[in-house]
C-alpha cells in the first residue's frame, strides 16, 4: 500500500481539471439555486454549450479560440432566455422539469446524425481545440512536473487559469450577493410575491440569475474542451448536474465559497476512495471486490456519505444551521 501515492493522486484530482469544471458549474448553480432559488436541473447543458462553442468555432469553422469564448457566452445567454421565458413566470417546479428535459434534448440533438458535419455526431469533435490556449503556456519548456502534484506542463497551465477563473467568478458572485441586486434575488428565493409587491420586476431578476449562472457553467465547458482537446456529447449526461448540486450542497448553498469547498471535498473523497480501494484490492486486502467494481463502489460510498451529511449537517459544511431552522413562512 503506497499511502504517499494515494495522497498525491487524490490531491491532484481534488484540485485538478475535472474538479475545476465541476466547481465552475456549481458556482453557476449557486447563483441560480443557492441565491435566487431557481431549480435548474439542466446545468450540464450550459457546460456542453461552452464545450461545443469551442469545438465548433475552432474545429469546424477554423476560427479563433478567443472568439469561441464570446460565442459560448452568447449561446449560454440564448439558452437561458429560451428556457426562462416560458417557465420563469410559472411555479418553480416547471423550470426544474423543463431544464432537465432540455439538457437531454440538447445532448441528443448535438450527437445526432443530422448535425454530424458541424457537431461531429456521436464521436463529437476531437482535435487541437485548445492549441491557441496551450501556445500561451508560460511554463518552461523543459518543465517536468511539480514535486507532489502530478500534472503535465499542459495540464498545469489549464489548472492555473482554471483556478483564476474560479477566483474571478467567486469575486463577482461575492460582489453581487452583497449588493442590492443580491438582496432582491435572495428575497425572490424566499417569497416572490413579497418582492413583486415591493415593485421589483421579479421575472427580470430571475432571468439575470439564470443567464449569469449559465455563463459561468459555460466557462466550465470551455475549460473542458481546451484541457481535453475533445468534446464528447455523452459526457454531458444529467448526472453531471446532480454532482454539481452535490458539490453545492456539500459546501453549503448560498455561501460564496460553498462551491469551492464542496468541489474539493467531493473530488478528494471520490478520488481518495477510488485510489484506496484500487490499491487495497491489488494488495489483496479486499478479496470480495474486483478492480472493475471500484468505480461504482466509490459512488455508493459517496451516496452514503451524502445521506450522513444531510442528516447531521443539512446546512452543508459552511451553512448556518440556525438560519436553516428559521421558519420559512
Amino acid at each position: 500500500m503506497d499511502w504517499g501515492f494515494i495522497l498525491t493522486q487524490t490531491t491532484t484530482q481534488a484540485i485538478g481539471i475535472t474538479a475545476i469544471i465541476y466547481i465552475l458549474a456549481a458556482i453557476g448553480l449557486n447563483v441560480q439555486f443557492g441565491y435566487a432559488g431557481l431549480l435548474n436541473f439542466g446545468q450540464v447543458m450550459f457546460v456542453a454549450a461552452g464545450s461545443y462553442a469551442v469545438g465548433v468555432i475552432v474545429l469546424t469553422f477554423d476560427l479563433s479560440l478567443w472568439l469561441s469564448i464570446l460565442v459560448a457566452i452568447i449561446v449560454a445567454t440564448a439558452l437561458a432566455l429560451l428556457l426562462g421565458i416560458p417557465t420563469l413566470r410559472l411555479r418553480a417546479d416547471y423550470l426544474a422539469i423543463v431544464t432537465i428535459a432540455a439538457s437531454e434534448l440538447f445532448r441528443l440533438s448535438v450527437r445526432s446524425i443530422a448535425f454530424k458535419d458541424t457537431l461531429g455526431g456521436a464521436q463529437g469533435l476531437n482535435g487541437k481545440l485548445g492549441q491557441q490556449f496551450h501556445d500561451t503556456n508560460p511554463l518552461p519548456a523543459d518543465f517536468q512536473s511539480l514535486p507532489v502534484l502530478s500534472w503535465t506542463r499542459q495540464d498545469l497551465w489549464v489548472v492555473i487559469v482554471g483556478w483564476l477563473l474560479i477566483a474571478a467568478f467567486t469575486v463577482l458572485v461575492w460582489l453581487l450577493v452583497r449588493s442590492p441586486w443580491g438582496r432582491v434575488i435572495k428575497g425572490i428565493r424566499e417569497d416572490e410575491d413579497a418582492v413583486v409587491s415591493l415593485g421589483k420586476n421579479v421575472f427580470v431578476y430571475k432571468m439575470q440569475a439564470l443567464i449569469l449562472g449559465g455563463i459561468i457553467a459555460a466557462f466550465g465547458g470551455i475549460v473542458w474542451a481546451v484541457a481535453k482537446q475533445s468534446v464528447q456529447p455523452d459526457t454531458f449526461q444529467p448526472d453531471f448536474t446532480f454532482f454539481a448540486y452535490t458539490i453545492l450542497l456539500l459546501g453549503g448553498a448560498a455561501r460564496v465559497f460553498g462551491p469551492i469547498v464542496g468541489g474539493i471535498i467531493f473530488w478528494f473523497l471520490l478520488a481518495g476512495t477510488g485510489e484506496f480501494l484500487g490499491q487495497a484490492i491489488q494488495a489483496g486486502w479486499i478479496d470480495f471486490l474486483q478492480a472493475t467494481d471500484v468505480g461504482n463502489i466509490r459512488f455508493m460510498l459517496m451516496g452514503a456519505g451524502l445521506i450522513a451529511l444531510m442528516v447531521f449537517r443539512p446546512q452543508g459544511i459552511f451553512g448556518d444551521r440556525k438560519e436553516l431552522a428559521l421558519d420559512a413562512r
Binding site: 424566499e190 417569497d191 413579497a194 418582492v195 409587491s197 428559521l326 413562512r329
Partner: peptide, 11 residues
Amino acid sequence: TFQLTKALSRM
C-alpha cells in the same frame, strides 16, 4: 400587504 404575512424570514 398580505393576509398571510410575507416577511422574508431568512433576511
